[in-house]
């Protein structure tokens, strides 16, 4: 028996909105500690990892670990039948569920849906706990804007960290540009820019993955970029009181 109730159903909708362009079919894992999801994008360049802790739910029960294979596209079709202010409950009865039930509750209506599940034998990747040599915390809408603007100039974006801060740069056919974000310790947390640079990095990435993933900015006013030289970068959106949504993106390297 599994039951998880989102107090803020809009949050769940934003999470699905953020990953729907990146991953197609995913295994939703539920166990005593909460819900998790890990899936690579179709080109195996990025890995999406979601972790939601049971304490963040209005109601949470999971007697036995469950794996529920679902199509993100079909999940979205069901979620489109819910309002952003609805409370959303996920539920299954049996141990090997073939469907996942949804209840959408608002003050004037209650809806019930069932999503057919599928069995996906997806390779799970072990993400080692890494000490990143550069960790940058900045406003998520600022990061989104920089990626969108520089992404118009070139499909590869460079990220260089130093004690002074973080610099985004592009060199394209039409020309080049760079944006250096200044560190500021304003007391307003959503505007703060913090850099912990033990070792500077200089990495290149396909900016289209950032632009796809940055829909997750709706989840958090801050984004955390963790980097080490020649390692995948991690973009992390903290989901208040619940957990986090991460994108691991493999770098582009000089051949």
């Amino acid at each position: 028996m599994f039951e998880a109730k989102f107090e803020d159903g809009g949050l769940f909708k934003k999470i699905v909105e953020a990953i729907k362009e990146l991953v197609k079919n995913v295994n939703l894992e539920a166990n005593g500690t909460g819900i998790s999801l890990q899936a690579m994008d179709t080109s195996h360049v990025a890995l999406v990892a979601l972790q939601l802790n049971e304490k963040g739910f209005k109601k949470y029960r999971c007697e036995k670990s469950l794996t529920m294979g679902l199509s993100i596209e079909n999940l979205q079709k069901i979620l489109k039948c819910s309002g952003n202010d609805d409370q959303i409950t996920l539920r299954t009865q049996d141990e090997e569920p073939t469907t996942l039930s949804f209840t959408f509750e608002s003050k004037n209506r209650i809806s019930e849906f069932q999503l057919n599940l599928m069995s996906l034998d997806q390779e799970q990747l072990g993400v080692p706990d890494t000490e990143y040599s550069s960790v940058v915390r900045m406003p998520s809408n600022e990061f989104t804007k920089i990626c969108r603007e520089l992404g118009n100039i070139n499909e590869a974006i460079g990220i260089e960290t130093s004690k002074e801060g973080i610099k985004f740069y592009v060199k394209g056919d039409i020309g080049e540009g760079q944006v250096s974000v200044k560190i500021n310790d304003t007391e307003k947390p959503e505007e703060r820019v913090e850099c912990e640079v033990d070792e500077p990095v200089n990495l290149s990435f396909a900016v289209r993955y950032f632009n796809l993933f940055n829909k997750a900015s709706a989840l958090s006013s801050q984004v955390i970029l963790s980097m080490s030289q020649d390692q995948p970068l991690v973009i992390e959106y903290i989901i208040e009181e619940m957990g986090s949504l991460k994108l691991y993106l493999a770098p582009k390297i000089n051949d």
Binding site: H44, G126, V127
Partner: peptide, 14 residues
């Protein structure tokens, strides 16, 4: 030029 690497080059399959 820049070669895109794959994520499963860095993370082992479990």
């Amino acid at each position: 030029g820049l070669q895109q690497t794959k994520i499963n080059k860095y993370f082992s399959q479990i």
